[in-house]
Simulated scan of single mutants.
Amino acid sequence: MVPVLTGAEPFAHEGSDDIGVLLCHGFTGTPHSMRPWAEHLAAEGFSVRVPLLPGHGTRWQDMNRTRWQHWYDRLDTHFGQLSARCRSTFVFGLSMGGTLALRLAQRHGAEVAGLALVNPSLTTLQRGARLVPLLSKVWPSVAGIADNIAKPGVHEVAYDRTPLRAAASLQQLWGVVRDDLGRVQQPLLLFRSAVDPVVPAISSRLLLDGVTSDDVTEVVLPDSYHVATLDHDAPTIFAASTEFARRVHESRVGEAA
C-alpha cells in the first residue's frame, strides 16, 4: 500500500452533539487544504470530520483508478456517522468538495442543515475540456492545479499532475449536480474568489441561478486565489461559516421546539 503523503491525513474532532461539520477537499487535493478551517471549527466546539477521498493523498496514478462515485461514497459514509450524533450537520466544501457537498444536499435533503462552499466547481471554460474523456484513454495526466494561492510561501499538499481519467469522471459529476440544482433548498453560504484561475465565475452563477434555497449569501473574497482556505481571506471564511452554522442551527432548534 502506498503511504499517505505527510500532511494529507484525515482529520476528526469529537465536539458538541449540537453542530457537526463535514468538510470536503478538492480535486487532486487533500485534507491539508481544509485543516486550518477544521481546526477553527473544532476550537469553536463543533464536531468535525475531514476525510481523505479515495485516490487522493498518495500518488496521482491512484486517482485514475477511482471515479466520482467513490469520492461521494466516502463522504456519504462520514455524513451518516456525523448526522447520527449531531442535531444539525453541515457540509462545507472547497472546489470539487463543494460539488460533492451539493450532491449530498440533493440526496439527503433536510438532513443537511446547510452548505458553506468555497469556489465550488460546476463547469470549466478551458479549451479542450470536451476532449478529456477521449484523451484520458491514451494520455494519463496533464499539468496539475495545486498551489493556486496568492499568499506568498504557502504550499498545498496536493498532486502536481491532473489525472485525466479522474478528470473525465469529475466532468460527469458536474453534469449530475447541475441537473439537480433545483433540489438544493438548504441555507447556502457561498465564498467566491474575485480572481480564481482554476474555477470560472460562471460556476458560481450557475449555482446561484439553479438552487431554490431561500437563505443564500454570497461573499466575494478580494485577496485570494482558488485555494482560499489557505489564502489571505481564510479568516473571513472561518468566521463567517462559524456564524452561519450557529445561526442556522439556532433557527432549526427554534422551529423544532
Rank of each mutant, 00 (worst) to 15 (best):
residue 3 P to N: 08
residue 10 P to G: 09
residue 16 S to H: 05
residue 18 D to F: 00
residue 18 D to G: 07
residue 21 V to A: 15
residue 22 L to T: 08
residue 28 T to R: 03
residue 30 T to N: 09
residue 30 T to G: 08
residue 32 H to N: 14
residue 32 H to D: 11
residue 39 E to W: 08
residue 40 H to M: 03
residue 42 A to H: 03
residue 45 G to T: 09
residue 48 V to F: 09
residue 50 V to E: 05
residue 50 V to L: 09
residue 54 P to M: 09
residue 57 G to A: 07
residue 58 T to K: 09
residue 59 R to T: 15
residue 62 D to P: 02
residue 63 M to Y: 12
residue 66 T to Y: 01
residue 67 R to A: 14
residue 70 H to V: 02
residue 70 H to G: 00
residue 71 W to F: 12
residue 74 R to F: 12
residue 75 L to K: 00
residue 77 T to P: 03
residue 79 F to E: 10
residue 79 F to S: 10
residue 81 Q to V: 04
residue 83 S to W: 13
residue 84 A to V: 05
residue 88 S to A: 13
residue 88 S to L: 07
residue 90 F to K: 12
residue 91 V to F: 06
residue 92 F to W: 15
residue 92 F to Y: 14
residue 94 L to G: 00
residue 99 T to V: 10
residue 99 T to Y: 09
residue 107 R to I: 14
residue 107 R to F: 10
residue 111 E to N: 04
residue 113 A to I: 03
residue 113 A to P: 04
residue 114 G to S: 13
residue 116 A to E: 05
residue 117 L to P: 00
residue 121 S to Y: 00
residue 122 L to C: 01
residue 126 Q to M: 04
residue 134 L to N: 05
residue 139 W to D: 09
residue 151 K to R: 15
residue 151 K to V: 15
residue 152 P to V: 11
residue 154 V to M: 14
residue 156 E to W: 07
residue 160 D to L: 05
residue 162 T to S: 10
residue 168 A to T: 10
residue 169 S to Y: 10
residue 181 L to R: 06
residue 183 R to M: 11
residue 183 R to A: 13
residue 185 Q to V: 12
residue 188 L to Y: 09
residue 188 L to R: 07
residue 189 L to H: 13
residue 189 L to M: 13
residue 193 S to I: 13
residue 197 P to C: 10
residue 198 V to A: 11
residue 199 V to T: 02
residue 199 V to Q: 02
residue 205 R to Y: 05
residue 206 L to F: 04
residue 210 G to S: 04
residue 214 D to G: 12
residue 214 D to I: 01
residue 214 D to H: 12
residue 214 D to P: 00
residue 217 T to K: 07
residue 219 V to S: 01
residue 220 V to I: 14
residue 221 L to K: 02
residue 223 D to L: 05
residue 224 S to P: 10
residue 225 Y to I: 00
residue 227 V to H: 07
residue 229 T to Q: 05
residue 232 H to R: 13
residue 236 T to N: 05
residue 236 T to C: 01
residue 240 A to R: 12
residue 240 A to H: 11
residue 241 S to Q: 11
residue 245 A to S: 14
residue 248 V to F: 10
residue 248 V to P: 08
residue 251 S to D: 15
